[in-house]
């Protein structure tokens, strides 16, 4: 195996170790979305108070928000911790799920 190949393999292994479950099976969008519901409402359909309702949010908006939480571009209390717990592809699949949920009438 050439040196380049070896370092590539090593780089991939290192990347896999830092990204959450980069190679493991992904939970479904619905399953991941359920972890948000304690604050953002069941199915993201929050009708009240401080947190952002996620139901009906456009995919782009959701993905951008999560990316910005990850990078710190968007300030947050604990959303950076949460965003860092999901891969790019998982965030996209959560975004698809929320975009497809009808918002709460109170939203």
């Amino acid at each position: 195996m050439g040196t380049l190949m070896k370092s590539l393999v090593f780089a991939c292994a290192a990347l896999a170790a830092t990204l959450p479950s980069a190679h493991a099976a992904e939970p479904s969008g619905e399953a991941m979305a359920a972890t948000c519901a304690g604050c953002h409402g069941t199915q993201g359909r929050l009708g009240t108070v401080e947190f952002v309702p996620l139901a009906g949010l456009s995919e782009d908006e959701f993905v951008r928000a999560m990316r910005d939480f990850k990078s710190g571009k968007r300030p947050s209390t604990l959303m950076s911790v949460v965003a860092n717990g999901f891969t790019e592809s998982e965030i996209r699949s959560m975004a698809r799920y929320f975009a497809g949920v009808k918002p709460s009438p109170a939203q």
Binding site: P27, M32, T35, G38, T77, V82, G85
Partner: peptide, 25 residues
């Protein structure tokens, strides 16, 4: 069963207007 994922957030107060937390995926 599909692949599971869980979160936890514990908010706590050091005073009425002084919040803190631990959060995990």
């Amino acid at each position: 069963p599909g692949e599971p994922v869980w979160e936890n957030t514990c908010y706590a107060l050091a005073g009425s207007d002084y919040g803190l937390y631990v959060a995990d995926v």
